[in-house]
């Protein structure tokens, strides 16, 4: 009878502990509830699509939706997010089948960030050996420069909401085995993913030691922690922030990066440079003709002068 009593009380205790855990979880869910509507526009290339699927595989709290068919009316996205019960939107906008822009937005009331995506490489292309649990929560590592300006601070918060997996998310796994890092360099945000590898520190051989020494050594080794090292998983992406809007896909622009040069501009400049070559050649031809004519006239004039001086 006593043993039965013991087990029952034990069960109760366990239940109590679980209750506390559940409460914690509920609290956490309340405090940091993030769901991300993830979708892309029509006309993405296969690489862009693969990038999206790679990012999705790292985000268990994301809800994937069908491609958006409109190219201008992004206000629809707010409604979509509401429909799917999401409070974040991650939207990949492809233009001209070559440029990719990413919009990150907080669903009903904003703000919204528009960024240009460059140097993207999918997991498939990169052949990295790193791997991690599908749905494990990442450690988000931000560069110190994210503290430097208010727009960077805002960006950090929004990136945290979108790329960080909230505690107790539905498909999340309990262990932590990867780091997602964001660094600012050259005015751009560099996105990287690393697997955390834990390795036992190399043990010293206990040969030639007395038993006591060996025991002490073992104790020491037990105390020392496993060594951490990182292996990159992929994908690699660079974001250039362009604008921040106050609302959700609308509202006044509260930040604009004038250093950003649109890829269209770059391409146009290149074309102009090419066209300039021909124009310069034509111009040179005309200049040369004028010059030769002038020289000929000068020569005639000088000859005339000479003759005049001779027959004076």
């Amino acid at each position: 009878m006593a043993s039965v009593f013991k087990t029952v009380t034990k069960d109760r205790n366990v239940e109590k502990e679980e209750d506390i855990d559940m409460q914690d979880l509920a609290q956490a869910r309340k405090e940091n509830k993030q769901r991300v509507l993830t979708l892309c526009s029509r006309g993405v290339t296969f690489r862009q699509r693969h990038l999206l699927s790679d990012i999705l595989s790292l985000m268990p709290h994301a809800r994937k939706d069908a491609k958006l068919d409109t190219k201008s009316n992004f206000g629809l996205l707010t409604e979509l997010a509401d429909l799917h019960n999401c409070n974040n939107i991650l939207f990949f906008e492809a233009r001209k089948r070559q440029d990719l822009y990413v919009w990150i937005s907080k669903a009903p009331n904003g703000p919204t960030v528009k960024m240009h995506v460059q140097n993207m490489h999918t997991m498939n292309e990169l052949h990295f050996t790193g791997n991690c649990l599908k749905g494990s929560r990442p450690i988000l590592s931000f560069d110190e420069s994210f503290d430097s300006a208010p727009h960077w601070q805002l960006l950090r918060e929004m990136l945290t909401h979108t790329f960080g997996v909230p505690k107790g998310a539905r498909k999340s796994k309990p262990f932590i085995d990867h780091v997602t890092s964001f660094s600012i360099a050259d005015g751009k945000i560099w996105y990287r993913n690393y697997e955390i590898k834990e390795e036992e520190p190399t043990k010293k051989s206990t040969e030639g030691m007395t038993e006591e020494e060996a025991a002490a050594q073992r104790k020491k080794e037990k105390k020392t922690d496993t060594e951490l090292s990182l292996v990159e998983i992929g994908p690699r992406v660079v974001f250039t922030p362009i604008i921040i809007q106050e609302g959700c896909f609308g509202g006044p622009i509260i930040y604009e990066n004038k250093e950003f040069v649109s890829p269209n501009q770059v391409r146009a400049d290149l074309l102009k440079k090419k066209a300039g070559k021909h124009l310069k050649r034509v111009d040179d031809k005309v200049k040369k003709a004028v010059k030769t004519k002038e020289l000929a006239e000068k020569r005639v004039a000088s000859q005339q002068e000479m003759l005049d001086s001779l027959f004076q």
């Binding site: 956490a28 405090e31 940091n32 929560r137 990442p138 450690i139 988000l140 590592s141 931000f142 560069d143 110190e144 420069s145 994210f146 503290d147 950090r156 945290t160 960080g164 909230p166 505690k167 932590i176 660094s183 600012i184 360099a185």
Partner: peptide, 11 residues
């Protein structure tokens, strides 16, 4: 810390 798991450090 486990709520958001975010760290800001030098690069």
């Amino acid at each position: 810390f486990s709520l958001v798991q975010r760290l800001t450090g030098p690069c």
